[in-house]
């Protein structure tokens, strides 16, 4: 969607607002954090047609009216399960091989009674 095309009232959108500018931040935060503004993003239903980058008003899921800069249609959740990790995939076969190996340390109780321990 181009920045010029307005989003329509009622659309599910995301807005952003600066909560604290760098100079307004807590004196206690580390320097790298203090160099940046504290920014807030929230999704809501757009209350009047607005273009991306302009001031917008939304109605949130909790029924509140919030103002901010329109970032665009509310983003999809695109987080994933990630790519397979080789160091993890080898663990299952390794553990099953250990369980299948005969060198189990003896269970004094069950060996004394002549039975295999029943795990």
């Amino acid at each position: 969607m181009s920045a010029q095309t307005p989003l329509a009232a009622g659309d599910w959108v995301e807005i952003e607002a600066v909560v604290l500018r760098p100079e307004e931040r807590s004196p206690a935060v580390p320097a790298d954090t203090k160099a940046t503004p504290l920014v807030m993003r929230v999704n809501g239903f757009l209350q009047a047609d607005a273009t991306v980058g302009s001031e917008a008003i939304v109605l949130t899921r909790a029924g509140r009216i919030l103002r901010g800069t329109l970032r665009g249609p509310a983003p999809a959740y695109s987080h994933t399960f990630g790519e397979p990790v080789a160091e993890l995939i080898r663990i299952g076969p390794l553990l099953r091989a250990i369980l299948a190996s005969p060198d189990e340390s003896p269970d004094p109780v069950h060996h004394a009674s002549g039975g295999r321990h029943g795990n």
């Binding site: 931040r25 807590s26 504290l38 920014v39 993003r41 929230v42 999704n43 809501g44 899921r61």
Partner: peptide, 20 residues
């Protein structure tokens, strides 16, 4: 949280989340 109907305020890094 959104799936269960909550308004979610998503912030950048910082303990002033508490202020908000």
């Amino acid at each position: 949280c959104e799936a269960a109907g909550a308004e979610v305020l998503r912030l950048s890094v910082g303990p002033e989340l508490f202020y908000q």
